[in-house]
Computed example of a mutant assay.
Amino acid sequence: MSDVERRASPPNPAEEPDMTLTDPETTTVTAERFRDAVDSDGVLERLLSSSATLSYDPEKEVDWDAPLEPLHDGVNPEWCTLYGTDLWERMGPEQRALLTRHEAASVASIGIWFEMLLQQMLLEDIYAKDYASPEFQFALTEIADECRHSIMFARGSQLIAGRSYKPAKGLHRAARLLKWIAKGEVAYTSILVAEEVLDVMQRDWMRGESVNPAVKTICKIHVVEESRHMKFARHETLEAMKGAGRIRRQVSAAMIAMVGYFIVKSLVQPDVYAEAGLDVKEARKAAASNSHHQSLMRLSCVHLMDFLSEAGLLTSFAKRMYRRVHMI
């Protein structure tokens, strides 16, 4: 296993990275603080408690005024879609760094897009629920987190790349339907699919020696706060799937897999190659056949696929969809 594969190996979903941010009023995150099983007894209360203690203000934590160094990467180079290809070998150091920064901006921008959909799905799901319940209150807490994350990603993209990205126009329009059709396990597992993939990537990027310091801090904040969101999504998915019949499992698994397919397919937009001064057609062809990047994608989804299997949402159709974007 390579160094990047060891770093990127997805941790146990119940574990958290050791992380201390600069605010003296915050607390160091430890594995013990998050080691709660996905059960129904007290999970949501613990998540609410940790939210009150371990939430961060990107305005204070990120050095937004630091100068941008031309050789600072946006992602660990090994995660670049062209890393290890002949085209990568022909690129100079500054061009490589520029490409990684635009890829990071693209991933962050797609994250914003999906987080906006996520917020709408959560609001639809909790609209009629008991306002006093921990489930209702944590869902609103998560929405507040996602608002801060989206602003943080938008500013980060502007900082390192001078622009943001959007998915293809047709997909951007069609995704508006998701808030109406994604209910229960479809909504929460779709959220989990997106967050699990980003989580593994960002755990590696935040340790990258050449990664821009602002990006590293952004990744650390997101990893810590998304850990709670993933626990919530797992909890809600397992609750929703209790007693689900075969037809419901098949339909839900298919919908979740299609969401996962389009999210992963959209992470790195073709414009990033043009921004780095590359021929877009040549770069896309090289990226599409890059076995190194495909291997990292599969590695990042190991625990996700285990959970989908446990929940009864890894059907034959779903597996085919995930294989098309190298998630399995």
Rank of each mutant, 00 (worst) to 15 (best):
P70Y: 08
E59G: 11
L98H: 05
R33G: 00
V223P: 10
Y83F: 15
T27S: 01
T217F: 01
K220V: 01
A154N: 12
G162P: 10
R248T: 09
Y131M: 01
T26K: 15
A97W: 03
S289R: 14
A108Y: 01
D130F: 06
S227G: 13
N212K: 02
M258N: 04
D73H: 15
P13L: 02
T315G: 05
D41Y: 05
E15G: 03
L177H: 09
R6L: 03
L314V: 08
R324K: 12
G243R: 10
G245L: 07
A144K: 04
V224P: 04
M19L: 13
V211P: 09
S164H: 11
R96A: 00
D73L: 03
R176T: 09
L198M: 05
L238R: 13
E32N: 11
C147W: 02
V215P: 02
L21A: 08
T100E: 01
A31N: 03
M297N: 08
W113P: 00
E310I: 10
P270V: 00
A194D: 02
D86G: 15
P270Y: 10
S252E: 03
S133R: 02
F317W: 14
N212Q: 00
M91I: 11
E135F: 12
E195C: 00
Y127R: 14
T22V: 07
A108F: 10
Y127K: 15
I181N: 01
S133A: 03
T26F: 04
A37Q: 12
A240D: 13
T81N: 06
I191D: 02
R284I: 00
R96W: 03
E61Q: 15
R173V: 12
I110H: 09
S49L: 10
D130G: 10
V264K: 08
T237M: 05
V211M: 09
E225Q: 15
L178K: 08
Q137S: 10
G74C: 03
K242C: 00
I221A: 05
A66W: 03
L48A: 03
S266V: 04
K129Q: 07
F153P: 10
T141F: 06
Q119M: 14
A31Y: 04
M206Q: 13
S164G: 12
A154R: 12
Q250T: 14
L82Q: 07
I247Y: 11
